[in-house]
Amino acid sequence: MKNALLTTLFILVFGCLGYWGLPWWGLAVVAGVAAWFFPLSGGKSFSTAFAAGFLLWFVAALLHNMSNGGILSAKIGVLFMGVKGWHLMSITALFGGLLAGFGALTSSYARQMMFPDKPRRYGRRR
């Protein structure tokens, strides 16, 4: 539980590096680092990171959209086959979730491959 919380916080905090130039795929890296240092089982790793990435990108998009009054998202929606502004926020969030989730999953499996004893320990803690 603690590691899940720490993973979430780590992704939320360091994912914001996007504001300072962290490229979009950096979210997968951030999630990977989180999963490495705060190990969880594969499935937990994915779901936790997915939720954090989803939340982070959703809120970031939401804040932009709110302060903009939806002017831009209405136009971008037309560009993407007529979807609505909140669809765009959901797509954004989905991309964030998938990037973080798969980044964490890959890292988690890598760790379990390199340190085969570790998962058992975490299994005990659980």
Binding site: C16, W24, A61, G96
Partner: peptide, 9 residues
């Protein structure tokens, strides 16, 4: 779609 530097910015 990157909400920090993509179109949302």
């Amino acid at each position: 779609f990157n909400p920090f530097s993509g179109f949302w910015a």
